[in-house]
Design a protein around this nucleic acid. Sequence first.
DNA 1: CTGAAAGCGCTTACAG
DNA 2: CTGAAAGCGCTTACAG
Lengths: 369, 369
Amino acid sequence: MGNAPLTIIDLTTKKGAIVAPRRQPSTLRDVARLAGVSPATVSNVMQNHPRVADATRKRVQDAARALQYEPNPLARSLRSGRTGTIALITPGLQNAYFAELATELIRTANAYNRRISVEVLDGDRQREESILTGTWTSFADGILYIPQKLTGREIDYVLDSRAGRRPPVVLLGERGAGADCAQVTYRNSDASQAAVKLLLDGGAKRVVAIGPHERAGSATPRLEGYTAALKQAGIPLRPELIRETPTWHRSAGMEAVSELLAEGVEFDAVFAFNDMIALGAMAALANAGLRVPDDVQVVGFDDVEESNFSVPALSTIDPGKAEAAQLALELLDAILAGTEPTNRQIFPDFSVVARGTTLASPNRSHAHD
Amino acid sequence: MGNAPLTIIDLTTKKGAIVAPRRQPSTLRDVARLAGVSPATVSNVMQNHPRVADATRKRVQDAARALQYEPNPLARSLRSGRTGTIALITPGLQNAYFAELATELIRTANAYNRRISVEVLDGDRQREESILTGTWTSFADGILYIPQKLTGREIDYVLDSRAGRRPPVVLLGERGAGADCAQVTYRNSDASQAAVKLLLDGGAKRVVAIGPHERAGSATPRLEGYTAALKQAGIPLRPELIRETPTWHRSAGMEAVSELLAEGVEFDAVFAFNDMIALGAMAALANAGLRVPDDVQVVGFDDVEESNFSVPALSTIDPGKAEAAQLALELLDAILAGTEPTNRQIFPDFSVVARGTTLASPNRSHAHD
DNA sequence: CTGAAAGCGCTTACAG
DNA sequence: CTGAAAGCGCTTACAG
């Protein structure tokens, strides 16, 4: 094996090629030996520790390259106590909003040199608890958690009953409020008020709200925003214009609008509590021969990618997904570094994205301008 | 600390409660000491090794419980060489199909007692290469890879240039064919043929195909299936009924149908290369006042969750997502266990899901019956 | 059935 | 600036 001739592998046929034997991955000790230094020095070079002589550094780097050395992340983690992995616990990936948030999180984490390991909930309380407790997530340095069923108090309870110390957790979204965790929450009420104001600025007088329900989450503050906007404009609240829905799927929007039309309720605008509802509402309006935005304006919430592709393109609220991802990771980083900020409740900025389904000035207006 | 009175923590106020000091996680040695056995024995008990005396086993288990002991997964992995983590490299999570496949994979992996760490590609070749090479994925025992840009040959090249030994990789989908990897691929051609047959069985004579394009992937076999079905039915291929699209988004389906209508092309059925195209096509048909399925039948591909919620519900092909997830994980498991099967090219069964957009018998018919 | 010993591959004070 | 030594928490042959 030692002196076997090395032949360039013929990629087209692989015939007659002498394939190099797969080597064992080389270790830090191998590099140290080749470079004629101690393992400690190699370690320092690999971590870009400053106090290494330039000549030594170069020698080590050359040796590492020659041996195709890559540090074993497991050994490194065991020793340093950090894995560089963050567990994301999310209600699901099916939902476009969660999928986009997860993508944003993964991207941002990569920029921070971290991996994201994903756990998907599925509405089962038991499972949610056990994932939170589990050895499962114990690989991770910290947890990014979008609660589905558990309340703040329950989250605290579960976290405290874990073996070992309580892991660093950052909560995302409305749920889980009250838990003793840092949390990134959207400005749901203000953003909803801005959304409804966009409709009113376009001349709407009778704005339907589709999506309220009793469960914990963002439905309540969004309804507040709706109410506040009408109040500010001096428009009376009409109960028949507020439509609860069991889900926030496209079908809910379709059904709500179909019912409104069937009941003969008059309306000239729709504030949908998310984009899926808005898209469903638009489909129902189109079926009924109503033109958007001329007959009925529509605004959604979430700025899901698909909202760009409807005809006309959907006006909506970007609640600040990208910023939320960034802030959540920064928060977790700070906690991991032991520099947890005093303000543990963070609200990213939202923006109003006026596209083709509303009549007011089509500029993308920001929350604070 | 030793004899401090333990007080039940008052969850409602937390006032006056003596909070137990957060302890360091206990280790295997702690358990061994408390149980009066050696670390090796504790290790054996934790792994359910059979040859441990029942009495000893019980003593160890009691000690472990008393100390709230949980094995450190890092140390375990370093020693055993396995992390229990699998890297999933996917083009994206936005796309409903990929999101559902990822969910399926995560669920199945959990059942196998494995974590899934997700890497998202974004159309950048460089990034795709570096993710594949990177230390990034080197934490994982194996890789589940849905290629986006890289060809089979490129994948081989990148994998071989990695430091250390070539990692176990299972490919998912059409792309990357030809790489020296196990692969799970849908029966795209057969399934497409069945989809078109469903339309023909419902009386269709002029079936539009929306979605072909030149790029590598599943478009080609799906077009083959379309062609084969027509041929078998003795129906001539009409070029004007075959509509290429730049993307497989909803908008592509809308535009294709709008164009067909504008051009005055006659058709009575649509075979959309995926569900999103189908849904877009249905929207355009509705806008034009055409009834589905009476005027135009529609069938999609993927059985995305949303296809249940369109009105009428979309008939489609379930290519076998759940089975594919299962098979891919089994394949990877076999490779990790050193028992790689001789047949490394695996095709899950598809099924025809006849719902409301087609006219033939509405039974869910399976591929092999 | 149980234990003593070596070691997975790295990092981290601590001397020098 | 560099190295010797200890150790992260576990598992794995190997004796007994």
